[in-house]
Every structure is written in structure tokens, then in C-alpha cells.
Design a protein around this nucleic acid. Sequence first.
DNA 1: TATGAATGAGCATTCATTCAT
DNA 2: GATGAATGAATGCTCATTCAT
Lengths: 202, 202, 202, 202
Amino acid sequence: MARVPQQKRSEQTRARILEAGKRLFMRDGYHGTSSKKIAAEAGVAIGSFYSYFDDKKALLLALFDQHMQRVHDLVAERVAEAGAGLLAEDGRGLIRTIVDQAIALHDLSPALHRELEALAHTDPDFGARQRAEMARTTQTLIALLEPHRDRLRVDDLEAAAWVVVFSMESVIHSMKMHEPPIAEERLRAALADAVYRLLYRS
Amino acid sequence: MARVPQQKRSEQTRARILEAGKRLFMRDGYHGTSSKKIAAEAGVAIGSFYSYFDDKKALLLALFDQHMQRVHDLVAERVAEAGAGLLAEDGRGLIRTIVDQAIALHDLSPALHRELEALAHTDPDFGARQRAEMARTTQTLIALLEPHRDRLRVDDLEAAAWVVVFSMESVIHSMKMHEPPIAEERLRAALADAVYRLLYRS
Amino acid sequence: MARVPQQKRSEQTRARILEAGKRLFMRDGYHGTSSKKIAAEAGVAIGSFYSYFDDKKALLLALFDQHMQRVHDLVAERVAEAGAGLLAEDGRGLIRTIVDQAIALHDLSPALHRELEALAHTDPDFGARQRAEMARTTQTLIALLEPHRDRLRVDDLEAAAWVVVFSMESVIHSMKMHEPPIAEERLRAALADAVYRLLYRS
Amino acid sequence: MARVPQQKRSEQTRARILEAGKRLFMRDGYHGTSSKKIAAEAGVAIGSFYSYFDDKKALLLALFDQHMQRVHDLVAERVAEAGAGLLAEDGRGLIRTIVDQAIALHDLSPALHRELEALAHTDPDFGARQRAEMARTTQTLIALLEPHRDRLRVDDLEAAAWVVVFSMESVIHSMKMHEPPIAEERLRAALADAVYRLLYRS
DNA sequence: TATGAATGAGCATTCATTCAT
DNA sequence: GATGAATGAATGCTCATTCAT
């Protein structure tokens, strides 16, 4: 049903709706945003909204996919920058990359992030998406940690990746939510340090 | 305007609405539950619902308060059981108590828990409640950790309490959400161990 | 259905409901007042309200009757005071009595007065009551004006009474409604003068 | 939020809702009319009602404005017809114009008219509208009477205009409300005569 | 007599969605 | 491609009224 853009004007319209949706979802949450408001914010008619997206949920799913793609691209980029070899040696650098990725995950606003998690429980589409995302993230981390295996305190790499990702997730969420008075860079450093000491020997 | 129960029949009705609300909120989430459905589930007329609660939000706040009260009572009980002196000596026992408390927090279903966090961002009432709850929890932990101060790796007790509570929160959330194949008791033990090693020396 | 008071406590309860209803109807209007609020204002249970009055409408009708009875008693009293003979001679005194009566009619608050007129159009019970009241008022005035017949400018006494009552009604309504800066006594005097000159010769 | 019509179909729908609202408000009163009934009477969906009007009150205010505009246009037209010069000379013609205007005011049904006055007391929006309307009407009358100043019995022109408008208002209201057996034209004539003799010398 | 718990029809309003233009 | 008028199911909530205690 959703229109597949074939002209560049069309592509622009789609992009404007995505941006408007992101802005409003982040500000007012999924349930606090109506399709009409999104269309108005994007400066298009409500009919156009439904030309490009099946419904409000489809828009959020598209935004979610877009966002996750960017997060993964960011990690890939960071890894490429540092050089695979370097990261294999530098445990602290690796952990910092992971921390940055986890923080990037929260660019979609803490509240929306939580709402997505809540929806994952209620709605099968969001649930599937979230499970896939989690698997992908865990696999990335395992691949990155694999070369460090002998330097780690933990034996079960899968469990370790799992614990690290989600505990960081929570600390970062609180951090974003409650706006601590400490500069973010200090928090990133402290978090990376804590995780490093949790995972690595001595 | 909310009715103040004066007869025992009334108290029962209020309790039935609270239970019905809890059941539906946990199953379908806050936004997926209507006041009419709650009344039906409780077996009362919609008018009765509004006699006891100003609106759907008031019901959720009442459930939240009830839930938090139970969690705090649980901790107090556990502390009393173990004996103040014992806990002061036994770092591992203390951490296990804290882990149990954090897990008890999730009896209100992971999805609802997440929705509450999302609401805290959007709605001032939920925000205030959440901040108060966070302060209360952190203070409890600081009080419990205080006697162990010289055995801890960390200097900043407040920050430590904060990090511990929220990182545990997330791990437990994921645990509850994704139903891992490992027995819960093993996870509780592993989590307690990780936290202990994070906080305590050697 | 409505309880007929048989004990003095009962009579008091009925009186308290009447007073409470009057107070609220005058302040918030008929449609802005609920039976529950009336009961609360009277300090009785809602069940008691329905013991004494069939419904909200019955209460307003009772208040209306009570009010009109007082207005007519007032006129009768005033007439008695002045003495029938005196009024027969003194046209100005008579008119002043009439003006006072018309003003007394408005003690029930301008808004409620208007609402009653609107209800008279929609609801047969109020309509009948209003027509009866109008007939009674007109007859009283005709009886009072009868002895002055030869001093009046008008021939049709019935029409004259009718025009006088209702035009005064409106002026008084506006007066009460818009709170003019002039002292009420001056307005009463001016109104009486105008009416006198309208009705009487030279 | 109210839709601003951009297509002619839309303008028609808005007009149909206005008409339906007028019909029902006049027949059943403001409080006896629900938004659903209005939509049904207009033959549109309830959603359409709320596209065009914020709520029931907004519809009544729109009807009120529309009505008052027509009344004032009528007067302007009548004045133009007679010719400014003629009216300046002809006191009786002027008064008749004023009487006609006052009667036109009541085309909105006596009951609704009364309900509007009651609402003006309770609701600030209606209050403001009514005060503005009263000022406008009084100013029009003062402007019309100004050239006749030396022929009038009264000194205070403003007060005179005020008294005339409101006393006529009431007489007309009663007239419309109680459907007197006399032909309307005779009543208009009688009323104009009374007012003329009240205001003018000899 | 008096109480207040309980009822449910009905009202105002929103919003995702469709479709004729 | 784009528009926006139209839809109506569903929601939150009120309030007059009944009846068991």
C-alpha cells in the first residue's frame, strides 16, 4: 500500500514526514502524537501521510530501522577508524567504542526509547524487531570481544556481552533522563572504566 | 472527589478495581487499557470506577504507590530477618538483599515498568513520583552500604549506589523480558556476584 | 414518593436541602448544579435528597413556589401597611409598591430567573407554573389599579398591567445584571417615576 | 483547530451544521441539545461537527454572532431605506425602526434568548459577548436619537437609550412567549406609540 | 429516617483512516 | 502525486437515580 517514491519530490516528502514524526515522537511520545499532527508538522496533507506510510505504527517502525541502521553504521565506522588490529590490542579503546554506541542508541530520546520497549511487549511487530536488534547487537559485541577472550575475567562470552550491553543501557538511560550535573564526557569515561574493570583481568 | 470508603463493601470494591487494573495494565499496557475494560474486568459499573479513582492515571498512581510500598516493606523485612549486625558484617548477604529488592520491583511486569518510565518523561505527576522513588531507593542503599565503607572499592558512595541500582534494574528487566533459559536462582546468584565484585575490594 | 415530614428533625432536613439548593442554583444555575452537590452543601446523604424531593426539578419547583409565595406575601403586607384607602388615593405610592414587588421577584438571582424562563419554554411543568404566576401577578395589579381607572391614560387595563409588569421586569433585570454605579434607591425612585408618568394622566 | 473551509463542499457542510444547531437549540434549548443530535440533524458524522466547531458552545457563539450581524444589517438597511434626512425629522418612524430591530432580535426564539442571558451570567465568553452587544446596540440608538435631542423629554440620552432597549426587549419577549391573541402588527404599533410618548415631548 | 454504595445511560470529544476531487 | 473533507468507533467521564444496609 505504501507508496514507493519514484520522483525526487516524492522522496523529499517522505523524508519530511519521517523527520516530523521523529521530532514529535521524541517530544510527545508515541501515544501523545497523532497522525494529523505529524502531517501538519511536515507541512503535508493527512492524505499524503497515508500515501507513504500504512499507519502511525509503520512510521515508527521505519524510524526505528533508520535509527538502528545509523547506530550500527556508527560502530562500523568507529571500528574502521581505529583499525581492527588496534582494537584487538586496545581493550580500553574497544570498550569506549561500545559505550559510545550505547549512548548513540539513546539519541532517540529516553522516553521514546522506553515506549518502544513497552510496545515490544504488547505488539508482536515491535517485539520481533527488538529481538532481532538485540541479537544483532550482542553478536557485534561478541565478535569484537572475541580476540580479547584470554584477557577477560569472564568465561561465558555471550552472557558477558549481554550483561554489559544492558547494564550500560540502563545507566545511560538514567543519565539522559535525569541530566546529571557532571559533564557527559566525564560520565562516558567513568562508564568505560567501570565496564573495563568489570570485564578485564587486573 | 474520590470516594473515601466508609463501609467494608466499599473497601472490597476498591480492591477489586485495583486488582483488575493491575491485571489489565500488566497484560495490555497503560495505553491499551480503557477505564471501561477495567470496570468490566472488576465486575463493577463504570460509574463505580470513577467513584474510587479520579481517572485512569490516578488508578495507575495508586497501583504504583501500593507496589513501591510493598517493595520497601519487603526490604525492611529482609533486613530485619538477617539482623542489622549480620548485614553489617556480611557484604554478600547485603548485596543479595539488594538484588532481591530490585527483582521485586519488576513484579509489576516489564512492559508496565517501561511504560511508567516513559510516562515519567511526559507527565509531571509520574515524573515527580519517579524522582521521589529514586531518591528513596538510593538513600536506602546508601544507609545499608555505609557500614561497609572501608571495604568498598569506590569512594563516592552516592554515585556507587546510583550505578548499582540502575544497572541491576536493566539486567533484571532484560532477564524478565526475554525469559532466559537459565533458572532464575542462578541468575540472581550471578548478578549478586557481579555486583559484589564491582563494589567490594579483592 | 416524596417524604412528608412528620418529625421536626425531618422538617429541618427538608429546609436545609431547600436552602442549599437555592444557594447553588443561584450561584451556578440549574444546569450547573448536581443533586450530589446539593446534598453535600446541605450536609445530608444523597439518599436523603431523594427522600424529600422526587428529583432536581421538583426541588426547583418547590423553591419557585416558595419564592413566589413570599413575593405575594410581601405585596399583601405592603398593601396592608399603607391601608387600602390610602393606596386608592395615592397613585405614586401604589406604583412604588409594584416596583418593589418586581424587584423582589429578582431576589432569586438574575441568571436563575432567566433559566426559569427558558425552562418554561421547554418543560411543561415550568410552563404551567409560569403562566399561572403571570396570571396571578396581572390580576393583583389589575385589582390594585382598578380604583384609579379614571386617572389613567390607558383604557385597556389588562394590557396596561401586562406592559408595565414586563417592561419593569426587564429594566430591573438589566439593573441587577450589570450592577450600575447608581445607588439602588435612586433607581427604584426613577423607575417608579417613569412608570407613573407612563400610566397616569398629566 | 476548527477547520477553515477551503472547498465549497466544506462551506456547505458548515452551513448545514449551523442550521441544524439553530433549529435544535431553538426547539430544545442549549442544554437539551447534544452535539450528536446536531450532527444527526445536519446529516453529518459527529467527527465533522468537531472539525468545524471546537464544541457546542463555539457553535452557539457562532450562531449568536451570525444572528446579531443580521440584526444590525437589518437596521442599517432600514435606516438607508428611509433616508437619513427623513428619519432625522420623523420621530415616529425612527422609533418604529427601533421596535422592528428589537423584535428581530427575538427571531432566535424566546427560550434560547433567555438561555443566552442565563449563560452570560455563568460563562465569561457569553458575558463578554453580551456586554459588547449591549454597548453596540446602545451606541446605535444614541446615534439615531442624537438629531432629535431637543424634541426629547429626557436629558440623559445614554440612560434613555438603555431603558428603552431593555424595556422593549422584555415586552417583546413576553409577547413572543405567550402568543397574545392580538395581531402582531397591532402590538408593534402600540409598542412604538408607547415608546414614542415615553421619549418625546407633547 | 438516614446513609452512601452502586448503577448505567448518555454526553463531549478524539483520532486513525478512507476516498472523492 | 497531493489534498483535505468526511467518517464513526471508541474513549473518558458525569450525573440522576435506586436500593441494600
